[in-house]
């Protein structure tokens, strides 16, 4: 592949709710819930934030790092399972807000939590074939969870954007290769006109998350003839803190290798944003020539794996926009009742 990352950016809403507060509402023991999920708190969107606003903020941050003319962007994909409209693209809102219109292609993607990485692959293909100069893929969500559902502890809001271009001097990282693994596995879904997703409970684990993440990771290692030791960092989709740690162990990655990109304990599961934000957290700190394994997971089910090699340009670009850590630390705590108002669970 001759494809690289020329810019990346994230956005995480400022509001947080502690899992303790949610657990108390439902009569659960907070410490048991937090240990089980390995999540402390999760991000909550303000009432005037949604997937479109999060996508725009993330894309604007990515553009700050890329330093490119937005008119050179030929494709925008927004991956999410919480697009503000059922019919009417989020991608056009983003395109307009970053002044990339009108000469480009744009579309919304949906593949549970992996739609953002699917967009990266689409952009990479278009760049590689010479159809576009740059493409931007965004993964963002304001995840929904029914009150009292275990998902409520982790369903969070946030997004990440990656700008893809040729692997030349302005690229801050090279995408060495990508590999996907997809099957029809109904572990998590939301039917038309339903406000909250449903899931298969423990079925979301072994036959779903683990099987797909492991298979995609093995696939790319095989394809590029690499081993876990060739990677300085690994980012796995993080629906909670436990799953990525377990899958890392299963694949032979150490805790140190995944530490940098493990943001879920502090913000929860940002769904389509999760892998993108994890990758951004690694890029915020990685050194040139370090290699990063990225494996997303989307229920339904599939995983996209990428091998990414950091380049010199990272050093001059990463300070051009706010880093993940800044978003993690810049927070305002709200209680459960405010949370229900912000999430429109309370209806006037």
């Amino acid at each position: 592949m001759n494809v690289g990352i020329v810019g990346y950016g994230v956005y995480i809403p400022r509001y947080r709710i502690r899992l303790d507060d949610i657990a108390r509402v439902w009569g659960e023991e907070p410490s048991r819930v937090k240990q089980g999920l390995m999540v402390e708190e999760k991000s909550v969107p303000a009432p005037d934030e949604d997937t479109a606003t999060i996508s725009v903020e993330a894309a604007r941050n990515a553009l700050k790092r890329a330093g490119i003319n937005p008119q050179d962007i030929g494709a925008i994909y927004v991956g999410s399972e919480s697009h503000p409209y059922a019919v009417k693209p989020t991608a056009t809102i983003v395109a307009e807000a970053i002044e990339a219109t009108p000469n480009l292609t744009a579309a919304d993607m949906e593949f549970a939590c992996k739609a953002g990485t699917a967009g990266i692959q689409a952009c990479a293909g278009l760049v590689e074939m010479g159809q576009i100069k740059y493409g931007i893929s965004i993964g963002a969500d304001t995840a929904q969870a029914a009150p009292g559902d275990p998902l409520e502890y982790t369903a969070a809001a946030g997004g990440g954007a990656v700008i893809i271009g040729k692997n030349d001097g302005e690229a801050l990282a090279e995408i060495e290769g990508t590999y996907s693994y997809t099957t029809d596995t109904p572990d998590f879904w939301r039917r038309e006109m339903r406000p909250y997703p449903k899931h298969g409970g423990r079925f979301t684990g072994k036959p779903a998350y683990f099987k797909h993440v492991v298979s995609a990771a093995h696939g790319i290692l095989r394809q590029l003839k690499l081993t876990p030791q060739d990677f300085a960092h690994a980012v796995f989709h993080q629906p909670n803190g436990k799953f990525p740690c377990q899958v890392a162990e299963e694949l032979g990655f150490s805790k140190a290798q995944i530490a940098c990109g493990l943001v879920v304990p502090k913000i929860g599961n940002t769904y389509s944003g999760a892998t993108m934000i994890g990758l951004a957290a690694v890029l915020d700190k990685a050194k040139p020539d370090e290699r990063i394994l990225v494996v997303s997971y989307g229920s339904g089910a599939g995983s996209d794996a990428f091998s990414i090699k950091v380049k010199k340009a990272i050093e001059e670009k990463r300070d051009l926009a706010p880093k993940v850590e800044q978003f993690l630390n810049n927070k305002i705590y709200i209680d459960y009742s405010t949370y229900t108002k912000y999430k429109s669970l309370l209806v006037r």
Partner: peptide
């Protein structure tokens, strides 16, 4: 400046940003 939802035409109308 930040990008936010400004309003909407009721629940089934256009969302303004």
């Amino acid at each position: 400046m930040v990008f936010r939802r400004i309003g909407a035409d009721r629940e089934d109308g256009v969302i303004y940003y």
